Amino acid sequence: MKFALLQFPISAQSTENHEQIKRAIFEAKRDGADVLVTQECALSGYPPIEIGAVADIDFELQDAAFNQIVDLVKHTQITVFLGLIRKFGDKAANSVAIIKPSGEVFYYDKRALWGWDAENFDVGNDFNGVVEIQRIRVGVRICYEIRFPEYFRELYKEQVDVAIVSLCDVQQEFDANRYSIIKSHLVTRAIENVFTVISVNSTTFEQTAPTAVIDKQGNLVVEAERNKKSITYFDYEKTEHGFGAKGCVTYSNKLLGL
């Protein structure tokens, strides 16, 4: 199964973000991808870093753009993991919309809400973020959740093959130490859960987390060029666990009482 990892700088004009995502879907389709993954809040921008506030979002305009993307997914038959801020009632959630080729949409809402997130976002549903695509189980988590192994243990229990992490982890100045720490989180989540981890980060400012692919042994398979708008491709093939991975599974199951 071929993944396309889209990283790009957010525009103050939401219509430009929409156009970039549409172009990426067409490009991914042309290049034979089955799945397109975007960064956190790719359609709306992540406030207050990339846009000022949730109140700055024209949700009527965004909903129209989102519906066009759903139609495009149905046309191209590519599954899309799309970061956005969604409204439910008078509240908002930081979500990844999983748009399937049938047009069906599932929303995974960020649960690790701290600081600004806690003041502005809520969790609107209890969807666990796991879908099946071509018999491959794929789960999604959002940004700050990478810090907590418990969120990824949930995916392990769901027998996920690939975990996607959608990020907006950027700063005005590069922080090599932070970049290294978050990359190490990605590696650890892959090794301890014996699954492939795919991360996609924004390029609006200096990236402090990578757009990358880590395999279940903890090997860095793919890493996009830092701070550059790009689509990076990765061909995933499900393989049998090796000796070390079987040991991880054996003791993980024992410790988790599975």
Rank of each mutant, 00 (worst) to 15 (best):
F3H: 09
L6H: 04
P9M: 01
I10T: 13
A12M: 09
Q20F: 02
E27N: 14
V37T: 06
V37A: 03
E40R: 11
Y46H: 12
P47W: 11
P47F: 13
P48F: 04
I49F: 09
I49C: 04
I51M: 10
I51S: 12
G52P: 03
D56W: 08
Q62H: 15
N67C: 04
I69R: 13
K74A: 02
H75A: 02
T76L: 03
G89A: 06
D90L: 14
S95R: 01
K100C: 02
K100S: 06
S102Q: 06
G103E: 03
G103F: 10
Y107H: 12
Y107G: 00
Y108F: 14
Y108M: 00
W114Q: 11
F121S: 10
D122K: 08
G124I: 14
D126S: 13
F127T: 01
N128L: 04
E132H: 03
V140G: 00
R153A: 03
Y156L: 08
Y156H: 07
Q159W: 06
V160H: 07
D169S: 14
Q172A: 06
D175P: 07
D175V: 12
S180Y: 02
H185E: 13
L186I: 11
I191F: 09
E192Y: 11
V194M: 03
F195R: 05
F195T: 02
T196K: 02
T203C: 09
T203E: 04
T203H: 05
Q207L: 11
T208W: 08
A212H: 06
I214S: 03
K216H: 12
Q217S: 12
L220G: 01
E223A: 04
E225Y: 07
R226Y: 03
K229T: 15
T232N: 13
D235V: 10
H241S: 04
G242I: 07
F243Q: 06
F243G: 01
G247A: 09
G247S: 09
L258W: 10
